[in-house]
Simulated assay, not measured.
Amino acid sequence: MNQDNNNEKNAVAKSFLAAMSSSEFWEVVQKCKRFDDPADGQENKLAKLQPQQVAAFKWHLENFVCAAYSWDMWGAAYMLRSGCSEDSFMNFLYGLVSQGKRRYEKAVHNPDSLAELWGQPDISSEDYCYVPRRVYAEMTGQEIPDNCWIVPGTLTGEYFSDTPIDAMCDELLARTQF
């Protein structure tokens, strides 16, 4: 049964990767950044694609969010935002992806690098999650396929609390009021 599930996931991944590579995904994200609100840019750019590409964009988006789903990243979001619920953290991750490949990869590798966002407007973007769904529905009259939605698993890394958070993100801690 588990092998069948893995085979199905691999088939889904292949179909989405055939429609849009991860490089193409990041190109679209980069073009969206030219707009004041990346979600507005996303809607503009996705409307020019084929429905399967929009679904593939959503699939990539969810995979990158899941890859960043860690306690260290949550700790960084918590410090940047002076608190962070689970929903708020997910919106933060969507916003992080909307910032582009370079910032995303830098933050995933070292969440403390998000200190460069200190004092800037919040990057969180709930809309970035839902735009592909809306655009796909407008194009096809149908809901985006269920296999585009990926639910993050268990947070990776070690649980943070206010006490050991200073060991996670030194630069961010230096800029906060903890």
Rank of each mutant, 00 (worst) to 15 (best):
S70C: 09
C84F: 09
E116Y: 02
E126S: 01
L172P: 03
D166Q: 01
S23V: 07
S125F: 09
E86I: 09
Y136F: 15
A67W: 03
E126M: 01
D170Y: 05
R102F: 06
L114M: 13
Q177T: 12
S161C: 09
C129F: 11
T176Y: 11
K33Q: 15
C84M: 14
Y78P: 00
V151E: 14
N7G: 05
Q52C: 01
F35V: 06
T156W: 05
A13I: 13
S161P: 01
F92W: 13
G83L: 10
V29W: 05
A137Y: 08
E116P: 00
V29L: 11
V12H: 08
F64L: 04
L114K: 07
P38W: 10
M79A: 15
D37E: 14
D36N: 11
P111F: 13
P38L: 12
V135M: 07
C84R: 05
T156E: 15
D4R: 14
L96Q: 00
H109F: 13
T154D: 13
M90L: 13
S125L: 07
K106H: 00
K45H: 15
D37W: 08
K58W: 03
Q52D: 09
A47M: 11
C66G: 10
W59T: 00
M1T: 15
S98E: 04
L46Q: 03
F35W: 15
P132R: 04
M1K: 15
M79F: 07
D162K: 06
R133I: 02
E138T: 04
D72E: 14
V29S: 09
Y130I: 00
G157Y: 09
L61H: 05
D40T: 12
S124K: 04
Q30K: 14
L117R: 05
N147G: 03
T140P: 07
G119R: 00
A68I: 04
M1N: 13
V12Y: 10
E43N: 08
I150T: 03
Q50C: 08
T176V: 09
R34D: 12
S98W: 05
S70T: 15
Q177C: 02
Y159L: 06
W74D: 11
V12D: 13
T163P: 03
N44G: 04
S85M: 06
G119M: 10
N110D: 12
N110C: 08
L114G: 02
E171I: 08
E138D: 05
V54F: 00
S21I: 02
